[in-house]
């Protein structure tokens, strides 16, 4: 057998899952879709003593529109998000990014919450949620109980999040987009579905005169986690999004917002070049959509 032995729990409710996690402290690992955890267990890079399988907890799965935005349960399969008409209408950036996540076989099983909590720097969903300024709802034992963490504060390092031991990500809320907003996603990978060498998720809002009121530019695969390109956003905010202004902001993102790693797939210089091109292209598309929307 590939994985090392573990004790297996299959709770039916969230309360039951939290109780099992609390009982085992840091020894227990939640199992969501398993598309990252089980490979790590097959290699025995991960050897959790206790596995808490969340797949029978129906209350953690589903997509609904609430007063504060679109709610996506942590155990909602990525494929369900990809096919959901409400997501396509109310969170088009998310809908656009979904097909870039691995392959259909992975998305059939992989979950939104699993990807967000795993915090792989090359993952699409953390960057998308950062661009959308999403709030991550977390539940854990007292005294913390329920917490809402902005995506910008959730990611704390390489595969590191603000989740404390015993806490579970239960829901992500995508706030309603302001009028005259537009978004776009792009990434470069060697093959479709491979880990991206670099990727960009942007959302912009324009004012009556067509000037940029707000820009959120989130980058993936160029740092320890998703990176919000604040300097690039500052460069374009208040400006009319001319090709020159967009190019300048994209160059700022590549030069000043990131310190990308080099590996066998791409050098730091190549990643910077990709970011410059991808930010320019996504900003162009997002501003066009904001003007038309």
């Amino acid at each position: 057998m590939k994985p090392a032995p573990f004790a297996y729990h299959r709770p039916e409710t969230l309360d039951e899952a939290l109780a099992v996690l609390a009982a085992h402290g840091g020894e227990a690992k939640p199992l969501a879709g398993g598309q990252s955890l089980i490979p790590a267990m097959n290699f025995r890079l991960a050897r959790p003593a206790v596995l808490v399988d969340l797949n029978r907890i129906t209350e953690l799965s589903g997509i609904r529109q609430g007063g504060d935005g679109l709610h996506i349960g942590a155990m909602t399969r990525q494929r369900a998000v990809e096919r959901d008409p409400i997501v396509a209408r109310d969170a088009p950036l998310l809908a656009e990014a979904m097909p870039f996540i691995a392959h259909p076989q992975i998305r059939n099983r992989g979950t939104v919450g699993g990807s967000l909590a795993h915090a792989d720097p090359a993952a699409e969903l953390p960057a998308v949620m950062l661009a959308l300024d999403a709030k991550l709802q977390v539940r854990g034992p007292a005294p913390r109980g329920v917490r809402s963490i902005p995506a910008g504060e959730f990611y704390t390092g390489l595969f590191e999040t603000a989740l404390a031991p015993g806490e579970l990500l239960v829901d992500v809320t995508v706030p309603r987009a302001a009028p005259r907003s537009g978004s776009a996603f792009a990434e470069v990978a060697r093959r479709h579905g491979d880990y991206a060498l670099a990727g960009v998720a942007v959302r912009v809002t324009v004012d009556d005169a067509g000037r940029c009121r707000e820009a959120r530019i989130a980058l993936l695969s160029v740092g320890d986690g998703p990176v919000l390109a604040r300097k690039a956003a500052k460069a374009i905010t208040g400006e009319s999004p001319t090709p020159e202004a967009i190019r300048e902001a994209a160059d700022v993102a590549a030069a000043k917002d990131i310190d990308p790693p080099g590996d066998i797939h791409a050098s730091p210089a190549y990643r910077r070049q990709l970011v410059a091109v991808l930010v320019r292209r996504t900003l162009e598309r997002a501003f066009e959509r904001a003007r038309n929307g």
Binding site: Q35, P104, R109
Partner: peptide, 19 residues
């Protein structure tokens, strides 16, 4: 190792049999 789980294609090496 792709099989169908409830009609959807999945990797059977990334699912525990008990699941």
């Amino acid at each position: 190792c792709t099989v169908l789980l409830d009609g959807e294609a999945v990797r059977s090496c990334l699912i525990l049999a008990v699941q």
